[in-house]
């Protein structure tokens, strides 16, 4: 069982896809970073939070048949590397579709879903998943 702050502190990033932009080189990062890997010390104090649009396309994907205990009920499920319109890549599930509908290049959009829970009394953890654009 985890304490609440572990999930609470990431909620804006996981609920609204808030990343950080290095205002030194104008690159957006997601997941958020405190130091830009290109500008390094030049970026200190210049990383600003920024929300992504949620639009992206599938860069690569897999259909998972032997997965984590927490995701057992969803097998087979699709994991993808989504290239966001705003630049960063995001690792996430693709849901509300059959695996056959997923291709490299398929346009997707972020949606807020339940991701995990810790037993009957633990915290329900929410975050982004992606659905195929109509």
């Amino acid at each position: 069982m985890s304490e609440v702050p572990r999930f609470w502190r990431e909620s804006r990033h996981r609920y609204r896809l808030v990343g950080t932009r290095c205002t030194n080189c104008d690159t957006l990062y997601f997941p958020p970073r405190v130091i830009c890997p290109t500008c390094r010390r030049e970026s200190v104090g210049k990383m600003k939070e920024e929300e992504m649009s949620g639009a992206g396309e599938i860069y690569s994907f897999t259909v998972v048949h032997d997965g984590l205990e927490q995701f057992k009920m969803q097998i087979p499920y699709v994991m993808a590397l989504v290239k966001m319109k705003d630049g960063p890549f995001v690792t996430a599930q693709i849901v509300d579709c059959s695996p056959e509908e997923v291709k490299i290049g398929t346009k997707v959009t972020a949606t807020l879903r339940k991701v995990r829970s810790e037993g009957k009394e633990g915290i329900i953890q929410y975050g982004y998943k992606f659905t195929i654009c109509p």
Partner: peptide, 12 residues
């Protein structure tokens, strides 16, 4: 956290 296993990363 989002459901990735090491094998799923290799697969991608």
């Amino acid at each position: 956290f989002f459901g990735a296993t090491e094998c799923s990363i290799a697969a991608m």
